[in-house]
Amino acid sequence: MTAPGIPVVFIHGLWIHSSSWTPWVELFHAAGYQPIAPGWPGDGETVADTRARPGRLAGVGLEDIATHYRGIIEDLDRPPIVIGHSVGGTVVQKLNLTSDLCAAVVLNPAPIKGVRALPLAQLRSSFPVLRSPGNQKRVIALSAEQFRYGFGNTLTADESDELHERFAIPGPGRPLFEVATSNFRSSSPAAVDTRTGQRAPLLFVSAERDHTVPDVVTRAAHRLYRDSPAVADLIQLPGRGHSAPFDHGWADVADQVESWVKRQVVSHA
């Protein structure tokens, strides 16, 4: 074990409960880290509790989520590794500029300001929220069919439906509107300084067949960091979709991430 006691904070994405990180928490704990997977502000402790009281998430945006996790990080006894999926990956990039981190990992991150790729698959995945401006203040749930397209398109229908039942929760519409309008606003919660060297090493993980955050979108975000002197690496997952961190192939993703994290910890020890 090369990193005894280093905290790891997992941040889930839109429409997925933090319990989806449980296997990762167990894997990183066995490797000697101190992992936690706290939910977003307004999340319930369980999927059932979150579904039962979805109104607590209404109006929650990127800054609210980032502020919530920033407070958690400040209470830790040493700089953590922070790993985020989808919208959680966008939040991780914000935290990497404002918090003292050991390393940062973003899996299929929702686009930051400056990413201009907009594939049709991404538009279709976002349509349940973006179809109505009023959804900025609402909480939206995905049907099993919508989940199948956005998350489970590389899975069997049975596995996708099972994951929907286990992990899917209603999510606030606001973060998607913030991401979707970021390139049209002078000041956006999705804006990140990609040129600075004053940040922790950063890893992008892109899924080749992702519909919600297509591979071209993740690669475009990674390219925005090309002028930074700090580490910004990229791993691509052939044949995988947006469910990659928590479907049947999660362990392969987690092993690749943990290997990269270990290299960063050793090189910066």
Rank of each mutant, 00 (worst) to 15 (best):
L130T: 13
G249K: 13
V47I: 08
A144F: 05
A200P: 13
V253R: 01
R124S: 00
H242A: 07
E258T: 06
I72N: 01
T194V: 14
R131D: 02
I6H: 03
W260D: 08
K113D: 03
V115F: 00
S86T: 14
A104P: 11
V129D: 01
V92D: 01
R70L: 06
Y69K: 12
I36K: 07
R78V: 04
S267H: 12
F184Q: 08
R195P: 00
T156W: 11
A58P: 07
S160Y: 11
G197R: 15
V261G: 00
P175W: 12
S99F: 04
I140V: 13
P189M: 00
T212C: 06
A52M: 14
D64Q: 13
Y149M: 09
S228D: 04
D77C: 01
T98P: 00
H248V: 10
S20G: 02
A141I: 06
S132R: 15
V82G: 06
R185Y: 03
R51A: 06
R124K: 04
S206G: 14
S182T: 14
G173N: 09
E258V: 02
R195A: 05
H12I: 13
T194L: 03
Q146N: 14
H68V: 03
R166N: 06
R226P: 00
L62R: 11
A103P: 00
H29F: 00
W260A: 12
G39K: 14
Y69F: 09
T218Y: 05
P23V: 02
D100G: 01
V265A: 04
Y33D: 09
D77M: 07
S182I: 14
I140K: 15
G39W: 14
V213C: 12
R70E: 09
T218G: 11
L57I: 08
A110N: 15
S125L: 13
D247H: 13
D247I: 05
D193F: 11
G171N: 06
L155P: 00
Q93W: 01
G44R: 10
A207T: 14
Q236N: 05
N183F: 00
A31S: 15
P238T: 04
T156C: 06
P128M: 10
V179G: 00
P175R: 09
S99M: 06
R174F: 03
R240K: 07
G241L: 10
T22H: 09
E208K: 08
G59I: 14
A48F: 05
D161W: 11
R240Q: 08
P175Y: 10
L142A: 08
L237E: 10
E162G: 07
G13I: 04
I235E: 02
E45D: 13
G84M: 08
V266T: 12
M1L: 12
S19V: 15
E74Y: 08
P111M: 12
Q264E: 12
L123F: 02
Q264D: 04
E145S: 11
L123Y: 05
L62Y: 11
A52P: 02
P54I: 15
S125A: 15
P238Q: 04
Q122Y: 03
Y33W: 10
S143Y: 08
L76R: 02
H222D: 02
W260Q: 12
V60D: 02
A168F: 09
C102S: 07
G173H: 10
L76F: 01
Q264W: 05
R138N: 04
L120Q: 15
N108F: 08
I112T: 11
F10I: 08
R185V: 00
W260Y: 13
